[in-house]
Each structure stands twice: as structure tokens, then as C-alpha cells.
Design a protein around this nucleic acid. Structure first.
Length: 285
DNA sequence: GTCCAGGATCGGA
DNA sequence: TCCGATCATGGA
């Protein structure tokens, strides 16, 4: 009698406006890594997942996930329930430049990440680079996260209570530098319910921004990232150095209001395009 | 050795 | 209110 090694795959029809590489490598998340055979692996909401695309490009393949997890976690996480075709086309009508920006990576989607993980991730992101942000978060999870329910070799992002119990030294030891105090301040304010992320998620947007900025280490840009990536407030438009340069260069005299209620999605197209076309910012002499 | 990284904070003008 | 120095850390 042999043990079955058959891998269970769940297939879902892949929308046209969705691409794994573009979505997972556009700077919005830090925990999905390329796995062998062109699959990505990652963890969210307590569950581990390997995800890839069929060779004909027609199907998304969910490996290591139950039907229940796909329906209740992953379709939501990858925002596969949203219709991006209309949104993307509207952006294309803004200007020819915007059309080429969207067409460079039309498969980007804004993920629905967990609020606390997004909050910590973007506190860690300040004055930092993406490979190092990813490394710090990976160590946080390995050392202080619970094991995934469906994979005992992978770890969830730490809970608020666990984060609040850590010492500055423990956080320094995983490389988070001066941000240790910021993470502890955040965990403390959430644990005491001085700030409630579920309430913040549904607040008036300006009130939500102000609430998040009560936490040390969260300024305007980080708050905007938390709202966009962790609370799915798609009108939020984080202004980092790349976006500032891109707006000045490509949309002079304009601001993000030209992109309407889904400006945050436009921001992601622009950010990704700018990172991969730095030559557009070279000064002509 | 210097510079930079999906910034925010602090003190002094 | 605004501006510059400073904050850990590692890779280029």
C-alpha cells in the first residue's frame, strides 16, 4: 500500500485583468515568494497557500488550500470578486501616458491584506528597502507567529497581544532598527483598544487618517498605505518619492483627483511603472 | 567610505 | 509653520 502523493489543485477561471507576478511584485505586499514551478507561496488569515497559473493561462491553480479556504479567504484576498476591466479602462482614458502605464502591468490588483499586518509592514517600510522589509517581516513571523493551521512549517503574522509582549531588544534582533518603539506603541494602543482597527476601517476617511497617525511612526504616507492595503480604502493615494516624481513628471499641474474614487489602484499602476522605468526621471540637459 | 531605501520625529529658526 | 539633522541596517 502506497501513500498517495497526488497534489490537490483547485482551479478557478483567471480574470483577464489579473497577473500573479504583477500583483505580488508591485510593492504592496511582502510575504509572497516565488516557489518552484512558477508558483508563489504565502500566508494570510492563518492559512498557507501555493498559487500558480495553468500552462494555457486560463486558470488560477490553488494548491494546499481547501475549497472552503479558496472561497472564504483567497478570492477575497486577491480581490477576484472585483471587475477591474472597467476601472482600468477608465484610467486609460485619462491620458495616453496613463494608458501606457496601465498597459505595462494591467494585471495588478490591490490585495485585501490584514489590517494589523499591513500596519506593521508599512511602519517597517519607512526609510527602508523592499528586500530588507521582507526579511524583517519573515523573521517576525518565524519567531513570533503561530503555525499555520494547514501547514505546520509556515507561520502567521504575530498577533497584537504577542507583538505587545515583545521587548525592544527582541525587535532589534530581527533587524527592525529604530522602528522597534513604533511597533510596540502600535501594539499597545491596539491591545488597550485606544485604537480599534475594525472601527477605523469604516470611519470617515479623514478621521481614519488622523486616528492611525496617533500611533508613533505612522505619518501621512504610512497611514495612507495602511488604509489602501490593509483596509481596502481604494480612494487612498500614498505619496512616496516615486509617486511624487511620477506625478510631477507625467501629470504636471495635476493631482490624484484626476483618477477618481479608485485613485489608489491608479497609484499602484504608476508606482510599479515608475520603479521599472527610472529613465523617465532622468534630467534632460 | 558614501549613498540610498514605499518616512517620521524632533529641535531650532 | 517650516527646515534640516537624525534615526538602524544592509546592500550597492
Amino acid at each position: 500500500m502506497s501513500i498517495s502523493t497526488e497534489v490537490k489543485l483547485i482551479k478557478i477561471e483567471k480574470p483577464i485583468y489579473f497577473d500573479l507576478d504583477e500583483t505580488l511584485n508591485c510593492g504592496q505586499c511582502f510575504r509572497f515568494k516565488k516557489y518552484k514551478d512558477d508558483f508563489y507561496e504565502g500566508v494570510a488569515k492563518g492559512a498557507y497557500l501555493k498559487i500558480g497559473v495553468s500552462k494555457d493561462g486560463k486558470y488560477l491553480l490553488f494548491e494546499g488550500a481547501s475549497q472552503d479556504e479558496v472561497e472564504n479567504i483567497w478570492l477575497n484576498y486577491f480581490a477576484l470578486d472585483e471587475d477591474y476591466s472597467k476601472i482600468a479602462k477608465n484610467f486609460c482614458s485619462v491620458s495616453p501616458i496613463m494608458e501606457s502605464i496601465v498597459n505595462y502591468a494591467p494585471g495588478i490588483r490591490i490585495l485585501r491584506q490584514e489590517p494589523f499586518e499591513a500596519l506593521c509592514s508599512f511602519i517597517i517600510s519607512q526609510n527602508n528597502n523592499i528586500p530588507r522589509i521582507s526579511k524583517i517581516i519573515a523573521l517576525l513571523c518565524e519567531r513570533y507567529g503561530e503555525k499555520c493551521k494547514n501547514n505546520k512549517d509556515r507561520y502567521c503574522f504575530p498577533s497584537v497581544d504577542t507583538m505587545a509582549s515583545l521587548s525592544e531588544k527582541e525587535l532589534r534582533d530581527i533587524g527592525c532598527g529604530f522602528r522597534d518603539k513604533y511597533l510596540l506603541d502600535a501594539a499597545k494602543k491596539l491591545k488597550s483598544d485606544e485604537i480599534n482597527l475594525e472601527e477605523t476601517k469604516h470611519m470617515d476617511i479623514q478621521k481614519a487618517r488622523e486616528t492611525l497617525q496617533k500611533i508613533k511612526g505612522i505619518g501621512p504616507k504610512v497611514a495612507e498605505c495602511i488604509l489602501l492595503y490593509g483596509m481596502h480604502r481604494l480612494e487612498c493615494f500614498p505619496y512616496d518619492v516615486w509617486i511624487k516624481r511620477a506625478m510631477n513628471t507625467l501629470f504636471p499641474g495635476k493631482n490624484h483627483s484626476i483618477f477618481g474614487e479608485y485613485a489608489g489602484i491608479a497609484q499602484q499602476y504608476i508606482y510599479h511603472y515608475s520603479r521599472n522605468h527610472p529613465e523617465i526621471f532622468e534630467v534632460e540637459i
